[in-house]
Design a protein around this nucleic acid. Structure first.
Lengths: 195, 195
DNA sequence: TCATTCATGTAAATAGTTACATGATTGC
DNA sequence: GCAATCATGTAACTATTTACATGAATGA
């Protein structure tokens, strides 16, 4: 019972985390998560706005500026109790690790030889996608994190390390898999036929 | 609009896939997926049974034996139209690839130096978990797939390759990350360092 | 005998996304 | 003037899991 499971707890922690780095609006929280943790964490507006309201009503965050004239903006900052809860979660030994689904692997698992030709472009587009991610990680790695509060982000490097290593592993796998698929899929050009 | 998006389409394909390999009950489908594709795909009863009923009413699968005396069992087999739909999905260029969330990385992203000590056991337990998976993949790799219909499972090897490469990459990352955390976390007692 | 596994199914809860409505501001 | 971006929020939908109810067969 050490970590109480509140509704939406996963989104809550991501949002508290962002606010522990800096004040932000809901819109900015989404953009920050898309820019930095996109490979392992994203949030949509449909989660962010209701969760912000909840966190505020519980006294974990507060509104630091609320413009209602013209363009409406609500900028939030984290409160001591929010910070406490965030640390509590980070230190709690319970990590929820569910493997996550991969539809491309599912296709490969059930594929027959005759599907090989159609799978090649799918693995190729996965490779392109991964290639772009690898480039992004390298940019992150060589980039300064900027205006973080002292001590914050001390371990961001390990998450970039993970992303980069995963991307490189996946690129190597794509190469091997495309080769395997090419071997199963005979070129249409020649008098090769089968099935 | 080439691939029509039916409700529950992801579960549908996984189930059709299993039935393309062999006849099975709902219970067995779940067990088969847990045993072989667990690292990238799982289904719960809450998805399986309603989806089986749906697939049956659409003429994609059929009941091959229905015992109601004693222990009730319903064994399903795939129909030609189901097989057609399965191939159509496998060959369709649209692959849904959403990165999936990783709570451990989220913790590391927001962690401070002072959290390092508490994170070490968490990464260690992740390492243990991954170690076991790596052993499983090696067993799968060296194992005969058994009684699959001719040509089925021609590419299962690529999915095992993926799982094993991912596990090995993760083990290496755990090693590096634990080392980084140890450096940030001051030892609790003077004479203890290193294992 | 009794725990485990086999087996089906549903209800409720939880998680999360997408699409929409609405409008201001910025930069070209 | 106009496209892109900033900004908040909700409703509906899709997806998926968990917990429960029920009971037979197996094997130690």
């Amino acid at each position: 019972m050490s970590t109480m499971n509140t509704r939406r707890s996963r989104s809550r922690h991501a949002i508290l985390g962002v606010l522990s780095h800096r004040e932000a609006t809901g819109y900015e929280i989404r953009k920050l998560l898309s820019g930095t943790t996109a490979h392992f964490w994203k949030e949509s507006y449909g989660s962010i706005y209701p969760t912000l309201a909840e966190l505020q009503s519980e006294g974990l965050i507060q509104v630091v500026s609320h413009e209602t004239a013209g363009r409406e903006t609500k900028r939030f900052s984290i409160l001591p109790e929010g910070e406490r809860r965030l640390r509590e979660w980070i230190r709690s030994p319970e990590v929820q690790l569910k493997p996550g689904r991969n539809e491309l692997l599912l296709k490969l698992f059930f594929a027959r030889r005759s599907d090989a030709a159609a799978l090649i472009p799918q693995v190729e587009s996965y490779r392109e996608f991964t290639r772009k991610r690898a480039i992004q990680y390298r940019r992150f790695r060589d980039e300064d994190s900027g205006d973080l509060p002292p001590d914050a982000g001390a371990l961001i490097g390990t998450t970039i390390d993970f992303g980069l290593a995963a991307a490189e592993m996946q690129l190597a796998w794509c190469r091997r898999t495309i080769a395997a698929l090419r071997e199963l899929a005979p070129p249409l050009s020649d008098e090769f036929r089968e099935e």
